[in-house]
């Protein structure tokens, strides 16, 4: 028995070490590179540790003719707004699908779900054309507007809101509460954990989104962080210290969100897996 337990432990520590190295080495390499001078980047054999720690890459990142600071701000703003829009619109829809009966409700809901089958690449070209027609290209409104429809978010919230007892809602109605009051004061309050989970996955998705902003935003003042980083990648493709400093900075905000909401992240991802 003891023998078996030791073998299990060996397996544990061995594979944990291997996988950790695989995960961590690229991060260390990123951090170390970002503190190197330009001349220390391309050496044979490679220099693991910078000879002297230099903050040049960071200074340059914010001083070159490149709106990096703006990109950070844009990303925070856009991701926050997209999260708010998605959660609000989905919660409103989900409330109806969960609690207010009408003819054809289930059919309409199935239609919502059926749209999840079609990959985003199919609808992105017409979506671009619609926004072009509306004159919303190169605007945050255009970038964020499609978030008002999110079948997956509606589905997730509806499943949860179904478990709210009807009696709560009826009691509020007897007290003369309006539907808007019921929605904000009862339904949303009782759904807080799932709303938080949804908010966290949506925020992360928006923060990391690349293809959609790449299509919609072509003006440099509007770019989000992923777009900024990929432009930097094209423009300064050999200046790895600059690129790594940029990558590192882009990680900080999302790590901070994670530190505060770890529970919701992990819950969200195991549910979010269904989304595909």
């Amino acid at each position: 028995m003891i023998h078996k337990e030791t073998r299990k432990k060996t397996f544990f520590y061995l594979s944990a070490t291997i996988i950790s190295c695989f995960i961590l080495i690229p991060f260390f390499w990123m951090i170390l590179t970002s503190f190197k001078e330009r001349g220390a980047l391309m050496t044979i054999p490679i220099q693991w540790l910078p000879e002297k720690i230099s903050f040049r890459a960071y200074q340059e990142l914010f001083s070159i003719d490149f709106l990096f600071k703006r990109a950070i701000f844009n990303s925070i703003f856009v991701s926050g707004m997209i999260t708010f829009i998605t959660v609000m619109s989905a919660a409103m829809g989900a409330y109806v699908f969960a609690k207010i009966d009408f003819r054809g409700r289930e059919k309409l809901f199935s239609l919502y779900l059926a749209t999840m089958m079609i990959p985003g690449q199919v609808t992105m070209i017409p979506n671009y054309l619609v926004l072009k027609y509306l004159g919303l290209l190169n605007s945050f409104t255009g970038l964020m507007l499609p978030s008002i429809f999110n079948a997956f978010a509606t589905f997730m919230l509806r499943q949860n809101m179904k478990s709210i007892p009807d009696a709560y809602i009826e009691a509020a109605e007897l007290d003369g509460a309006s539907q808007i009051t019921i929605f904000f004061r009862i339904v949303l309050v009782l759904s807080k954990p799932v709303l938080a989970t949804l908010a966290v996955i949506t925020f992360m998705g928006a923060w990391n989104d690349y293809l959609w902003p790449l299509i919609i935003l072509t003006e440099r003042t509007k770019m989000t962080l992923p777009i900024g980083l990929s432009l930097l990648n094209g423009q300064y493709s050999r200046r790895y210290n600059l690129l790594m400093a940029g990558a590192l900075i882009s990680l900080i905000p999302i790590l901070m969100v994670y530190a505060f909401a770890q529970k919701y992240f992990e819950q969200g991802l195991s549910i979010g897996g269904i989304k595909g």
Binding site: W29, N208, P226, N233, M244, A247, Y258
Partner: peptide, 12 residues
């Protein structure tokens, strides 16, 4: 790495 955006991850 799951938190890292794909663009940053790909740069690395």
């Amino acid at each position: 790495p799951v938190l890292t955006s794909w663009v940053a991850g790909a740069l690395i």
